[in-house]
Each structure stands twice: as C-alpha cells, then as structure tokens.
Amino acid sequence: MLKIADLSVRYGMIEAVKDVSFEVNEGEIVSLIGANGAGKTTILRTISGLLKPFKGSISFEETDIPRLSPQKIVASGLSQVPEGRHIFAGLSVLENLEMGAYLRKSKGENKEMLQMVFERFPILEERKAQDAATLSGGEQQMLAMGRALMSKPRLLLLDEPSMGLAPIFIKEIFNIIGEINKQGTTILLIEQNAKMALSIADRGYVLETGQIVLSGSGKELLASDEVQKAYLGG
C-alpha cells in the first residue's frame, strides 16, 4: 500500500534519513521505532509532503507522493497525527474536528464521521464546545487522532502518540489504535515506546541515525537481542 524505496532526506547538508526502504501492506500495523533524532519524524513529514525527499521514492498505492501537495496527499487517503499533537489552540474541539474533514464537501458524510469519532472518543463529545487548548494532554492526543480520522484515511500515520502520557493513558491509546486498525484502517506507527509499539504491530523496523538497521515481525523484534538491549533495557 505504501512503499518507500531508497529514501534520503536532507536539512541543508545534514542527511537526516539515508537510503531508507520499507513498506506497509494494506490492513497492517507497522511500527517504526528508534531513539531521539533517529529520523522518524523526518520520514513522516516527508510522506505527508511537508518535506521533499533528496532522493528515493514514496508511492502510496499507485500515486507518486513527492509530486503531490500536502493537500492532494490527504485527498489520496493518507492522514497524519503529528508529533506533539499540534491541535489548533483557540479553535473549539468541534472546530478542530471539522478541520480534519476540510477536504470533504458532503455534509452528511461529515456528520457520520463525526458520530464515529465521538463514539470512539466520548470525551471529545463532552468537550466539543471547549477551546481545544484547555484539554489535558491525553485528551489532546485523542483530539489529534479524532481529527486525523475525520478525513476517513485508508492509511493513518501516527508520530509518537504515547509521548508525555501517563502509563494508563498510553495503554488506552494503544488499545484504540488496535481498534482503529481492526475497523480497516492501515497504520504506520512511530514510537520510542518500543515495547508497546512492537507488541501491537504486525511488522516493525528499527531506525538508527537515519538508517534502518533491523526489521521483522513485531514478535521477532520484541524478542531480538538488539531490541532488548537498545530499547527495552534488557
């Protein structure tokens, strides 16, 4: 579904991502794990069109992603929950969700999606009139996820959804990611929390200083010595 080949991304002379190749198949949860500064966010921003690759290709189904504007990329069925959530402060919870459906013209379908998001995150319905900036960190994460779902993506990109959350919230967020996947959305998950990310993943990749150093099924990676040592303190 998503295929990345020999991708390199640079900031000026700094090569943050080097010759990265990986793929995500329809229906999967794929986790990309790596330490701070490994280049995870850079990869996701490039997939969403906020950065242009220095070289390499990104194709989503048949479309060549780097040629498209971020707008067209969203329209093609790809949606991102950015690192740090980036909810729109000063806009209400409901308005934030509406922005997630910006490209859709049909009001009826918007209503349906909103209903679905409210069912998935009941707290958002309770808080819908509230300024999104006043939500707690965990609620903001739910809002960011709900907002990304509003466009009804076929592939959802999540950048460190567990960041800064209490363990109980992290568990809930990962449960929800699993449910979203079961309902038919393919997921590319980026995490530092390797244990949680690999345990729900079908497959995973390990990124180190811009390069993929390991790949395998979620189970394999969890059990591997390298991952145990580097990410799980074992």
Partner: peptide
C-alpha cells in the same frame, strides 16, 4: 469554513497542511 481555516493556519500552518487545508 474559510474563517476557521484562517484561524487554523494562523495557529499552526504545518498542522493545517496536514488537514489538507489549502
């Protein structure tokens, strides 16, 4: 919708792009 998009772009241009806002 345009007014809301204006506010969204004002607070966070990158996030607005991720929503598909022009």
């Amino acid at each position: 919708k345009m007014g809301k998009a204006m506010r969204a772009v004002s607070v966070d241009t990158d996030a607005a792009m991720l929503m598909g806002i022009n």
